[in-house]
Design a protein around this nucleic acid. Structure first.
Length: 823
RNA sequence: GCCGAAGUGGCGGAACUGGCAGACGCGUUGGAUUCAAAAUCCAAUGGUCCUUGUGAUCGUGUGGGUUCGAUUCCCACCUUCGGCACCA
């Protein structure tokens, strides 16, 4: 054996071997239990970055580990290949998006292989492949059939720089998530998916996701934003019309001293027409409509309003109260109208103060009296209802129930649930995406492309200027078609779908990527699904993960899959930082994985990245740490190489003497710890440190012992190699071969540990006096409590501390500690 | 502003169910090996104090509390990070 782990020759050798042996190709096998490991597939930007290395290294450990445990493991890889950068490259560098994407995937595939990940490349998918997006289109049509895909003219988030609309989720602080341009409103005909239909189920089924981080579920919960309240009718004074509001605080209705309509509310124009306020109101409405998103709802948005002169009637007090319009009420939530209770709502309070509207207290803490005039802020806490006739003296909760019951009896309102979640707008005015399979006919309207005509393929002869509307609109051969219904001339939809649509179902396609006549093979899907372990960045908590759950639920309802949730267990890995800062090209603090690979090899890179922090936490890149990982692998290498002759000659063994027993115990402790750390706790850093401890123990045994137990050493060394195999797959494979085995180390069974081997005859018990450690005693494991107490008190240092004191209590924690309380 | 997470040696981190704080690694120091170095191996490594011990004492963001015992549970606060942000 060589003196050192020579990664430059060993790593490529085994990568090639694994590929030739088809080691990681998987087939369905109903007799074998399956395990599906999936990492979020990458956007093919052209090069892997450290975040990728981390993501896929974590997944690879799980995949290899589960495989060694005897599971039939599915571990696929593919490309989230549609998207803007390809199109930008086309504009800038005059290269076709398809070519650019292909070059990038080729390069990244090569890089993946250099890292030695156990992907089944036979199952590779790319969302930009017509064989894939055919089925994305088919799914669109399925949603369309069920009324869950619809076209709507509405105000949309428009990014002037990307020249496309954005989903609400893609607008961050009024700016485009991708390019940070300010997002403006634009009126457009757009396709949306009715994810809101599933709002409640998406919320309820969180209880099925016990293996998800609470943080992610909470983010989704907040995003869905369920609120319970009531819809209430307010009559308009001297009019047949009435106004419906949504409120979460119907218990405060006696304190409703004015109403507010969103400027876009359809009743505004109707009610003011012909009144002397008409011009003023319509002028204000126009101004508000022209406010952009940031001005209206942003951080420093100013509340602006105007009295319409109209009065509404508070159904409980009978008072006529003013109807205002104001920018702080949004048309697309609730009913677009509110009853304002300034005493108990911060926003209403601010507005009432500014426009000098009446404030009436209807909730007070039990032992306090509020006066509206003295209030400096709204009182939004719990309390008792006052000034409210039928509700007086009730708690907020009870008043809520009572008033809603009253509304329902009097037919002026009802209980209502609203969600913050909006429908998912999927139209994008871009070229490099899945074409929306719809044809517009003057006579028949929107007509879905018949299934047999799928896929609607992207035309290739497009000029990319970055200007104007959807690039597809220029392709006459694409646009002009005939109506599938009536055969007359018609034109195609020229928008493409949000790339999140592509990635909402890829995990299903992996189960049968080759099927040509179906979206996926149901038998295969039912065998492999769910994804047992999904791994990716937390930035996808509300977008990708919510959309994918929505798709899975839809497919479940349509009877295509047997599960309601796609991902049983989710691990969100932390970021890779350099000196505490996020690596980014603009900051110039990027560590290129390929350089690390050149200098240290894949196993070292992987081991360091897994050891430096637990998977869920951020990780600071550190060159000295990388060298530490290298040092450790070399230490394992030498442990084998220096003892290879002893090991190869070794046979059966018996454990004899303290040193051997100790090593044997350490061996089994390590097996136990590594197994539990990987499979239960998902703490890969401590799994590695357990292996390090075993390696240290082996060195110590060798240094301290004159007669080496060859059989025991063989067992220890071989177990180290097997335990380390998921973390450092190349080096362990080479060691395994050197140990004389022909089969891959990755085909070995994961070792079992024996509780008997871990058990000790004698254990160390901590002796405390008044909670402070004063001594430690070695006693037989099965020592009686009384005897232990005696032994403990005999210790010299313990004596010193209990001398002259009364022993009040003696607490014994079995196998661990005794605490003597003395006064 | 609201919601959530985190804060442990010089550094990354460990301590799983309330029971020895600092596993493992990095760094540092000393020793062995060497002509010398690199590499490697061995040892030490939270602070303070002294009578140098099987010692005392302080110590897990800060201040309190519960407990025989708290990094772990409770209350208040500080800092950092993440999410949401006129959603009635």
């Amino acid at each position: 054996m060589k003196e050192k782990y020579d990664f430059q020759s060993i790593e490529p050798k085994w990568q090639q071997n694994w590929e030739e042996e088809e080691l990681y190709q998987t087939e369905m096998d109903q007799d074998q239990e399956k395990y599906y490991v999936l990492e979020m597939f990458p956007y093919p930007s052209g090069n892997l970055h450290m975040g990728h290395v981390r993501n896929y290294s974590i997944g690879d450990v799980f995949a290899r580990f589960k495989n060694m445990q005897g599971y039939n493991v599915l571990h696929p890889m593919g490309w989230d290949a549609f998207g803007l950068p390809a199109e930008n490259a086309a504009i800038k560098r005059d290269i076709h998006p398809a070519d650019w994407t292909e070059d990038n995937t080729d390069n990244m595939r090569k890089q993946f292989k250099m890292l030695g990940f156990s992907f089944d490349w036979e199952r590779e998918v790319a969302t930009c492949d017509p064989d894939y997006y055919k089925w994305t289109q088919w799914l669109f049509l399925e949603l369309y059939k069920e009324g869950l895909a619809y076209k709507d003219e509405s105000e949309v988030n428009w990014c002037p720089s990307c020249q496309t609309v954005l989903a609400n989720e893609q607008v961050v602080d009024g700016e485009c998530e991708r390019c940070d341009s300010e997002v403006i409103d634009k009126e457009l005909e757009q396709w949306s998916f009715k994810i809101t239909e599933y709002a409640q189920e998406l919320l309820d089924d969180h209880h099925l996701l016990s293996e998800w981080p609470d943080k992610v579920k909470l983010m989704q919960k907040n995003w869905i934003g369920r609120s319970e309240g009531a819809n209430i009718e307010f009559e308009i004074a001297d009019s047949e019309d009435s106004l419906e509001v949504f409120t979460t605080r119907p218990d405060t209705i006696y304190g409703a001293t004015y109403m507010v309509l969103a400027p876009e509310h359809p009743l505004v124009e109707k009610l003011v027409t012909g009144t002397d306020k008409e011009a003023e109101v319509m002028d204000f409405v126009e101004k508000m409509k022209n406010q952009d998103e940031e001005e209206r709802t942003g951080e420093n948005a100013e509340k602006l309003g105007l009295d319409t002169g109209i009065k509404a009637v508070n159904p409980m007090t009978g008072e006529k109260i003013p109807v205002m319009i104001a920018n702080y009420v949004l048309m697309d939530y609730g009913t677009g109208a509110i009853m304002a209770v300034p005493a108990h709502d911060e926003r209403d309070f601010d507005f009432a103060k500014k426009y000098d509207l009446p404030i009436r207290v209807v909730i007070q803490p039990e032992d306090e009296d509020f006066s509206a005039a003295d209030m400096e802020e709204a009182y939004t806490e719990d309390g008792l209802v006052v000034n409210s006739e039928i509700l007086n003296g009730l708690s907020v909760d009870k008043a809520f129930d009572k008033i809603v019951e009253y509304f329902e009896k009097e037919d002026i309102g009802e209980k209502e649930v609203n969600y913050r979640l909006r429908d998912w707008l999927i139209s994008r005015q871009r070229y490099w995406g899945t074409p929306i399979p719809i044809i517009y006919c003057d006579d028949c309207g929107s007509v879905p492309v018949p299934e047999e005509d799928l896929p609607v393929e992207l035309p290739t002869d497009i000029e990319f200027t970055g200007e104007g509307e959807s690039p597809l609109a220029q392709a006459d051969d694409f646009v002009n078609t005939t109506c599938p219904k009536c055969g007359k001339d018609a034109h195609r939809e020229v928008d493409t779908m949000d790339t999140f649509v592509d990635s909402s179902w890829y995990y299903l396609r992996y189960t049968s990527p080759e099927v040509a006549d179906k979206v996926f093979d149901e038998e295969q899907a039912n065998y492999w699904m769910n994804v047992d372990q999904y791994i990716g960045g937390v930035e996808h908590a509300v977008m990708h993960l919510l959309y994918a759950r929505f798709f899975m639920k839809f497919l479940y309802d349509q009877g295509y899959v047997e599960d309601r949730e796609p991902f049983s267990s989710l691990l969100t890995q932390g970021m890779v930082l350099l000196d505490g800062a996020k690596m980014s090209k603009s900051k110039g603090n990027v560590v290129d994985p390929m350089e690390i690979l050149d200098e240290y090899g894949a196993d070292v890179a992987r081991l360091f990245i897994l050891f430096a922090a637990p998977p869920a936490k951020d990780l600071d890149w550190n060159t000295e740490g990388v060298e530490g990982a290298q040092r450790f692998l070399n230490r394992v290498w030498r442990l084998t190489a220096n003892n290879i002759d002893t090991i190869q000659d070794a046979g059966d063994f018996e454990v004899d003497g303290d040193a051997e027993e100790k090593l044997y115990r350490e061996l089994h402790v390590a097996i136990k710890d590594v197994t539990e750390d990987v499979s239960e706790r998902q703490q890969l850093n401590t799994a590695i440190s357990s292996i390090m401890e075993l390696v240290n123990a082996a060195y110590k045994y060798l240094a301290d012992s004159e007669d080496i137990n060859a059989g025991l050493l063989k067992e220890v060394v071989e177990t180290i190699v097997v335990l380390l195999a998921p973390f450092a797959p190349h080096m362990t494979e080479e060691l395994w071969a050197n140990l004389g085995y022909e089969e891959s180390v990755h085909q070995q069974s994961w070792p079992d540990y024996s509780e008997d081997a871990i058990a000790k005859d004698e254990i160390e018990i901590v002796v405390q006096v008044n909670g402070k450690v004063r001594d430690k005693v070695n006693v037989p494991v099965d020592i009686a409590e009384e005897e232990l107490k005696e032994v403990a008190k005999e210790q010299e240092n313990v004596q010193r501390h209990i001398e002259g004191k009364n022993i009040v209590k003696e607490i014994v924690v079995p196998q661990k500690l005794i605490n003597i309380v003395a006064q």
